[in-house]
Structures are given as C-alpha cells and as structure tokens.
C-alpha cells in the first residue's frame, strides 16, 4: 500500500509536477507566462493543427468503419465464422501499434510494397496518383489499423444491448428501418458512439512511435516536435517543451473527462 503510493508519487506525480511547474518558468526559474504565449507561435500552432487533423480524421473514419463492422457482427447477423475472426482480430489489432505497425504498412503499401506492386500489375500506379505512405493520408491509413478495431471492441456490447423489442415495436408502428435508426437506435447509441470516438481521438493524438518510424519525423506532429525538443533544443527555448507537453495533457484530460461523462450516460441504457 505505502510502497505503491511512494512509487506513484516518485515516478508519476513528481515528473508531472516538474512538467507543470516548468511550463510556467523561464530559463532562470522565474515565473512566466511566456511559454504558454509561445504556444501560439505559427510553427507550433501548425504542429497542433496537423496532430488534431490526423486524430480527428482517424477517429471519424475509424469510428465509421468500426461501427459498420460492429454492426455487421451483431445486429447485421454476419455468419459465425466471420464474427469469430473479426472479434478476435479486433482484440489483437487494437493492441498492435508502434514500430512493427509502421513496418507492416511499409511492406504493404510502401513504394515497393506488396499491394503497390500488385496494383501495378493491373495498371494502377498508386504512387502516380500522388499518394504516399509517408504523408498525412498514409499515416491516417496506418492508424486506422488499430483505431477501427478499438471501435469494434467498444461498440459491440453497445449494439448487443439494443433490444429486439424496440425494433419490433417500431415495425409494428409502421416505422421504416431508417426511422428506427434515426429516432430509436442512434439516440440510444450516440453517447457510446461519441465516447468511443473520443477514445480513438486520444489514441491517435498521443501516438509517436508509428509516426516516427513511418515518416521519419517529416510530418510535424506535436509528439514529434516534443521528441525533437528532447533530443536538442530545436525551438530555441528550453522551457517551451514543457508548455507543449502541458498542452497535450490538457487536451488528453478533456478527452478522458468527455469519455467518462458519456460512458456513464451509456451504461444507463445497457443495464
């Protein structure tokens, strides 16, 4: 009990405090708000904006695809073997990330990758269309590999919670499938949908290893920028790194709060 709290204090709370106080100090340790003000430097705003774009795009696309797959294996009534494989692989792929994931996508849709070569044999030049794996859309495609399975994992119990009686009641009252989804199913599901997508957003926003291994740091995400700042003071202000980090933590904390609130609303219906 005591060792646990000492450990947490030393290895989690202490570094967190150092980050927090560092954000409000200048090089000499004097109090300042200049670091926070520097966050609005165009270069840094750009990094935040790219990070947000990647995270929002992947959470929307991953959310959509994950929802549809979860739909297929629950209400949609996909065959049992398909359900089994998709459920197992969702658990697997949601835990697959980092450098190996980047390698898998380089081998598949990289410049000489398997799919790129396969498409060439049917006269589709993937890289001729302007696509490259080492860019925004490439990163999005790669993140989706662990994002949509996460959505499947979160949405499957929610969709299983939709009672048959609700659908039957709608049909008896003459509602079309569209009306059922629009006025009954989606209003019940939206907290879990939104909550799950916040989770996806967070997992993309904090990711570093995949992006670093894939783009070698050429796509300037906030996480990449922090990494460069650790290796050497690229921003010309040693304490600006603290503020960058603080900004990320604030966004992630907002995410988790949003998720918790929505999660509580969801469980109300599932019980």
């Amino acid at each position: 009990m005591v060792p646990f709290f000492v450990f947490i204090a030393f290895f989690l709370l202490l570094p967190a405090t150092v980050l927090l106080t560092g954000s409000f100090q200048d090089g000499e340790g004097q109090f300042t708000l200049a670091n926070l003000a520097s966050l609005f430097d165009p270069y840094i705003l750009k990094a935040y904006s790219i990070s947000l774009q990647v995270s929002i795009t992947t959470s929307l696309l991953g959310g959509l695809l994950g929802f549809l797959v979860a739909y297929a294996i629950t209400v949609g009534g996909a065959p049992g073997w398909m359900r089994g494989i998709l459920t197992t692989f969702s658990g697997l792929a949601a835990n697959f990330g980092g450098v190996p994931l980047a390698f898998a996508f380089i081998a598949t849709v990289g410049r000489t990758g398997f799919l790129t070569a396969l498409l060439k044999t049917v006269n589709i030049d993937l890289y001729g269309t302007g696509f490259t794996l080492y860019s925004f859309w490439g990163l999005t495609l790669t993140y989706l590999y662990f994002e949509f399975p996460l959505m499947v994992l979160v949405m499957t119990p929610a969709l299983t919670g939709l009672r048959h009686e609700w659908r039957e009641a709608c049909e008896n009252l003459g509602a079309s499938p569209w009306q059922y989804w629009r006025y009954v199913a989606l209003p019940i599901l939206w907290p879990s949908l939104l909550g799950a997508m916040i989770l996806l957003f967070g997992s993309a926003f904090g990711a570093y290893a995949t992006a670093q291994a894939l783009t070698g740091g050429s796509l300037l995400l906030v996480t990449i920028l922090i990494g460069q700042q650790i290796r050497g003071d690229v921003l010309g202000n040693a304490n600006l790194g603290y503020a960058l980090a603080l900004g990320m933590v604030v966004i992630m904390a907002l995410c988790l709060t949003g998720y918790t609130v929505l999660y509580q609303r969801t469980t109300r219906w599932l019980k």
């Binding site: 290895f11 570094p15 967190a16 150092v18 980050l19 967070g202 926003f205 904090g206 990711a207 570093y208 996480t223 922090i226 990494g227 700042q229 650790i230 790194g241 603290y242 980090a245 990320m248 933590v249 992630m252 904390a253 995410c255 988790l256």
Partner: peptide, 12 residues
Amino acid sequence: FIIPVIVYVFGL
C-alpha cells in the same frame, strides 16, 4: 492513458 508516453519520458 492521459499522459502520452512522449510527454511522460520528457518529464522523466
């Protein structure tokens, strides 16, 4: 979960 690993290592 809230503190990205890159931020955490920076603090460490």
